[in-house]
Amino acid sequence: MTSAPPQPTHRPSVGLLFNPSTPEVMEQVSDLVEHLSVNPGQMFNDLGAHSPFGARFAFPASLLQAVAGLREGLMLNGHSFSLSLPSATPLDDDLADAISHVGDRLGGFAWLAEHLNVLIPPRGPEAHSEGGMALPVNYDAETLALLSHKLQRLRQRSGLRLLLENPALLTPLTEMEMDEPTFLNTLHRNGHCGVLLDLHNLLVSERNGGLSMEHYLARLNPEAVEEVHLAGGEELFGTYTDSHSQLTPEAVWSMARSFLPCCPNLRAITFEYNETYFQFIGCQGVRGELERMHHLAQSCALSPAPTGVPC
């Protein structure tokens, strides 16, 4: 494996979202990878409050040791898809603590991002069941108050900077009190979180009837953006999805080139792909994406200290 490049301080770092193919990929592209993102929920198993095995959480030592070794010399951030923060339920404190524990076992997260989706229905019949779904959030005052409270509690428990990721909407909601960038701007302005801007998710939402990418980015506060995701998707049953099955489409690159240089607090640009499509993308595909990301990162100047309200 080639050695990791030094951590940049004057521009966003370039990296990958960890998946089971990452160790193989790193053998060939580690000279281009400056950070890794890890989904903490993939680093342990939630056996439920009424676990037949006694403990609710199981932390597989071999996996954690392997990932801890892989991230040596690299910045690591948490990219969670578990907490379902917008659900009309209290914060799952034990789950939040398990995520923090994973960060500790891996040598520390630089920040923790969560998805702006309802992942768990409020009245699932089994404790700690999850819906296997990513539902849209109603952007109104009630949800804003709920999320603000839960983000504050999560930050207190985890001690981490928090980001929320804009969702990939297959069925965007109608008649909302505020649009998504306004909702995210408000959370940021009130000091609750920054934004993980997934530019491919914007394309998915646009193609399925949501805000246009141009309109969205014209409304989003660039100071709120601290991480960006790039990815590709495909159509399924006539609907464009965020399948992470392709390289980043040109429409997304175009938006990235025009918007990211305006984001003074952008610290990381991350490429996501699903490991089940790795045989089609290949190491050369990933390398090509990383090279383009480095070129993009060179055009983005990072502020010495975060501007705007700290999260």
């Binding site: 779904m133 297959l170 069925t171 399924l236 006539g238």
Partner: peptide
């Protein structure tokens, strides 16, 4: 409106 959205077939399938 969500129930009638053309992407619900895909959402349910996923």
């Amino acid at each position: 409106a969500t129930a009638n959205h053309p992407s619900m077939e895909c959402t349910c399938s996923l």
